[in-house]
Amino acid sequence: HHGSGALAALHADGPHAGLPVTRSDARVLIFNDWEERKRSEPWLRLDMSDKAIFRRYPHLR
C-alpha cells in the first residue's frame, strides 16, 4: 500500500489554513481522498498530475 498513512504538511493558519504546503503534500491528500472514494466509486481514476493539483489547490501554482 503505497501512500496510506502518509501525512501531508498543511498550512496551520492564514489564508491557506488546512491546505497542503507543497505539491508532494497535495499528492498525499489527493491519493488518500482517491483511496477513500474508490470504495464507493471503483471506476474513479487517480490523477496526481500537476494540472490536477493546480485545479484542486490553485494556491500551489
Rank of each mutant, 00 (worst) to 15 (best):
H1N: 11
H2Q: 13
H2D: 08
H2N: 07
G3I: 14
S4W: 13
G5W: 10
G5I: 12
G5N: 10
G5M: 12
A6R: 13
A6W: 13
A6T: 14
A6S: 14
A6P: 09
A9L: 09
A9R: 10
A9V: 14
A9H: 14
A9W: 08
A9K: 12
L10H: 02
H11A: 05
A12R: 08
A12M: 09
A12S: 13
G14S: 04
P15T: 08
P15N: 07
P15Y: 06
H16N: 13
H16S: 07
H16D: 06
H16T: 05
H16R: 04
H16Y: 15
A17H: 07
A17Y: 10
G18N: 05
G18C: 07
L19N: 07
L19E: 04
L19R: 15
P20K: 00
T22V: 05
T22Y: 02
R23K: 15
R23F: 13
D25T: 00
D25L: 02
R27C: 13
V28K: 11
V28D: 02
L29Y: 03
L29P: 00
L29A: 05
I30A: 01
I30V: 06
F31K: 15
F31N: 02
N32A: 10
N32E: 08
D33S: 04
D33I: 14
W34F: 11
E35G: 06
E35W: 15
E35Q: 13
E35C: 14
E35V: 14
E36S: 13
E36G: 09
E36I: 14
K38I: 12
K38T: 10
K38D: 01
R39T: 11
S40D: 09
S40F: 11
E41A: 06
P42M: 11
P42R: 07
W43Q: 10
W43L: 11
L44D: 02
R45K: 12
L46I: 04
L46T: 00
L46G: 00
L46Y: 12
D47Y: 04
D47R: 02
M48I: 13
S49L: 02
S49H: 01
D50T: 05
D50G: 02
D50S: 08
K51F: 13
K51I: 15
K51M: 11
A52P: 00
A52V: 06
A52H: 06
A52M: 07
I53T: 01
F54C: 08
R55S: 14
R56Q: 10
P58G: 02
H59A: 01
H59D: 00
R61N: 11
R61D: 12
R61V: 11
